[in-house]
Design a protein around this nucleic acid. Sequence first.
RNA 1: GGCGCUAUCGUCUAGGGGUUAGGACGUGAGAUUCUCAAUCUUAAAACCCGGGUUCGAUUCCCGGUAGCGCUACCA
Length: 516
Amino acid sequence: MNSPRVRFAPSPTGFLHVGSARTFIFNWLFARRNRGTTVLRIDDTDVERNTEASVQSIFEGLRWLGLEWDEEYRQSERLELHKKAAEAIFARGLAYRDFTPAHTGPASTEFDTQSGAQGAWLCNPGMREMSREESDRRAAAGEPFALRYRVPRGGDSSIARVLRFVDGVYGEQTKPADEVEDFALLRSAGVPKDGSSSLGLWDGMPTYHLASCVDDADLRISHIIRGQDHLTNTFKHLLIFEALAAEFPNFASPQFAHLPLLVAPDGSKLSKRKHGPVVSVTTYRDAGFLPAAFVNFLCLLGWSPKNDREYLTIEELVQLFSLEGVNRANAVINFTEESPFDDKAVWLNAEHIRALPVEELARDLEPFFAEAGFHPKPGRILAVTPLIRERIKLLGDAVGAADFFFVDELAPYDPAELIPPKKGESTGDAAMARRVLETASEVLAVTNFDHDSLDKALREAAAQLGLKAGPMFQPIRVAVCGRKNAPPLFETLVVLGRDVCLKRIGQAIAALAAQG
RNA sequence: GGCGCUAUCGUCUAGGGGUUAGGACGUGAGAUUCUCAAUCUUAAAACCCGGGUUCGAUUCCCGGUAGCGCUACCA
C-alpha cells in the first residue's frame, strides 16, 4: 500500500567499492521496480576514519553509475536526533552506563566480564547491575562512560526471549536474546583533558547501530537491503527499533533482506586496503566500462533472472529484479594483477558497446582520445567509431585500436611486416610486396575514395598481379595502419583519405627499398 | 572458542526425489573472412564428504569438513 523506501548508507572511509556499488544497485532496482524511494545516507559517525575526500569519491562513483537517488542525508548532521534517541532509551531504563575504560587492541578478558556458556562476551555485570545513584554520581563526576543496551536476559526465572525476523533472502532467522551482548549505543567521550572536564552527560558519539536505526526509523525506511555481514547484527537492530517505538510511532519495523557478499578470488572479503584500486568503481570507469555494463555485471553476481539471460539493460533489470532471485552464497569477483577485471565484466562491456548507437559510442570515446592527446576534428571520431566498435572491449581500448587515424606520422614499425609470409617459407616475397605497394599507389591515385570503388579497383589490381586478397591487402594495410591487425581495409582507406594513404604507402615503399 | 550463514563446471549461475544436471564467461577445435575482431558450430569441464529417509538422492534430514560473517566504545 505505501510505496517502499530503501536506503543506501555507505560510510566514507575510502572510495566507493564494487560491493557497496552492488548494494546500492540492488536497493535502487528494488525501489524502481516497486515505485519506491531511494534514500542516500552518508553514514559518517566515525569521525576518526571518515574523510571528506571519501565522501566526494563516493558521490563520484555513484554519479557515474547514473542511477539517481531521491533523498540525501548525512548522519553527522543528525547527531542531535541520535543523542535524543539515546537519552530516551536510557530514560526508559533500556540502557545503562558502562564506565569500563575503552579497551584498545584486541579484546582482552582482563575486566569484570560475564561470559556466555562457552566464551562469548555478554556484558560487564558490575556495570549492568550498578545502581542508578552510583551511575549518576560517577557520570556527574566526569567519569567517561559508554552507553550500552540492556539486552533482556531470561535469567533462571523466565523463559529466554527469542528474537525473530524473516529475511527477504535468507528466510526466517531466530536468536535467543540471551546470546546477544550488551552492545554500545554511545561511545565514551574519551579521556578528559586536564581536569577541566567539560564532558556533559551525553557527549559520547553514537555508534553505527544506534545512528543507523534511529535514522532508519526517522526516515521511515521500509526495506533494509544490505550486505550479509549485517545478518547477525539485525537482532540488535530489532531491539533498538523496539526501544524506539514510542519515539517514532509512525514507524513500522522494516523488512530486511541481506545480500551475499562479493569476495576476492581467494575467498577473502573485498578490501580496499588489501586489494587496492581494482575494487574501486572509478577504476572501472577509467578503464572504459560503460555504466550500464558495469551494473549488468554486478547484478549477475548474487542474483539471477533465472531465464538464462545475461545481457540486460537497466530497464530490463528494473523489470526483472526481485529479492527472490537473490542467491545466498557469496560470489567471487575475479581479478588479478595482470587482468584487473573479471572476464565476464569485460565481455558484457563489449556487448553493451556493440549495442550502443554509433553517435553515442563516439561521444563516450571522445574523452579517452582526449586523454591520449588526440583532439581530432568534429566528426572524425564518429567516422572511426564503426570501424573499431567490434574490436574493443573497453572504451580505453579505442586509443590503441585507432591511433593511426589520428597521428600525422605513423609510429615506426618493422618493414618486414609489409611482406606477407609465404606458406612453407621463412621469408616472403619482398619484391612482390613492393610491386603491390607501387600498384596500390597508382590505383589509389585515380580511384574514387569510396568503399565499393576501392574494393573493385584493388581486387582487379590483385588479379592482374596474380595475387589473392590476403597477400595483396597486407602490404597496403601495414603501410597505412602501421600494423598487421586493423579494421577492414577499404573502410579504413576511406576514413584516412587519399592524401594520407598515398603518403604512407610512399613511405612504406621507401622503407622496403632501404631494406634492400 | 561461541553463534550464524553458505556449499552445482576454473568463475557467475539454472535446476531439482528418477534429467544426456541447462545457460554464460573463459579455454580447445572448426567454419566464415582481406588481417584482427565480430559471428556461427563444436569439445572438455561441476552436484564437498559421510550417514540416514526413500524403490531411488546431487536435490530432503543429520553429522563432518571447508569458506565466510558476527562476536569492537568500525561500519
